[in-house]
Simulated assay, not measured.
Amino acid sequence: MAEFWRWVAEHGWVGWLGASAVLACAEMLTLDFTLLMLASGALAGGVTAVFLPGAWLIQVLVAVAVGGVMLAVLRPTLLKRVRDAPGYRSLLDQLVGSEGTATRQVTSETGEVKVRGEIWEARTMSPGVTIDAGESIEVYQVDATTLIVYPASQGLGWSGGART
């Protein structure tokens, strides 16, 4: 058993490499760059373990320091680049153009709709328009947490942007 622990102490980099791989793979499920930054910290801990086997405290400190710096410096930069990329649409922006159903009467002041399986506060885009519960709607705009909608049956009143 002592031989096993000696091997673990001498080859701690294998554990760090495994932790780094697990975190990097888990990042593919979140796509938020957080786990990727932590994976880089674990990789740095593994590199430290190669040069300083048995120095667990230093390995942990290096892993925490590198992961923390990556989270604080690199992650915000990467997120900004992704969000500023052409064609990027946030989850709220993706709601524009979606179809749904009014769950309560929708007026220009208040209402409720169901879009993509979620209930949202809503109001019509035009004053005087009322959408009854059960009618189909389309999302025109997102205003904070309120969807601006119009009746799907009536459309927006133009044909492909061309004036008639």
Rank of each mutant, 00 (worst) to 15 (best):
M1E: 09
F4D: 07
W5D: 05
V14S: 04
G15Q: 04
G18W: 07
A19Y: 02
L23I: 08
L23M: 13
C25A: 13
C25I: 11
A26P: 04
A26H: 02
E27I: 12
M28E: 01
T30Q: 05
D32H: 15
M37K: 01
A42N: 05
A42I: 10
L43T: 10
L43D: 02
A44L: 05
V47L: 15
A49N: 05
V50G: 03
V50L: 14
P53D: 12
I58L: 14
I58D: 02
V62F: 09
V64K: 03
V64D: 08
A65E: 06
A65Q: 03
V66C: 10
G68D: 04
V73H: 06
L74S: 08
L79F: 02
K80E: 11
K80M: 02
R81M: 15
V82Y: 14
R89A: 13
S90M: 04
L91I: 05
D93Y: 06
E99F: 09
A102K: 08
Q105I: 06
V106K: 07
S108P: 02
S108H: 07
E112I: 03
V113M: 03
K114T: 14
V115L: 05
G117H: 05
E118M: 09
E121G: 06
R123Y: 07
T124D: 02
T124C: 13
T124L: 04
P127N: 12
S136I: 00
E138P: 00
Q141D: 14
V142K: 06
D143V: 09
A144N: 08
T145A: 07
I148T: 08
L156N: 12
W158I: 01
A162T: 10
